[in-house]
Amino acid sequence: MRDSRVKVGIPSPLHSYTGGRALVDADGATLGDVIDDLERRHPGIKFRMIDEQDHVRPHILIWVGTKSVRDLKAKIDGEVKIVAALSGG
């Protein structure tokens, strides 16, 4: 499948990896591809939101379009938004 370029919304706790940018580009046909491309462009960002077993960390939400997605095999069919979930003090 051909990669597509998507806009990815980055939450403020991860801005140190994106040079302060809240919206960045990434390429990929699946969510996993997009995350891997983010890692290539912004080294270190992946492990802060995805653990070593490829599970999305508990307090991270990822939206693809209007759907909350935790499966890295999910197809990309909309803008990606990463959210540091509201989890208290």
Partner: peptide, 8 residues
């Protein structure tokens, strides 16, 4: 680490 992010 951070409240939302993995350890480093």
């Amino acid at each position: 680490s951070a409240g939302h992010l993995g350890p480093t």
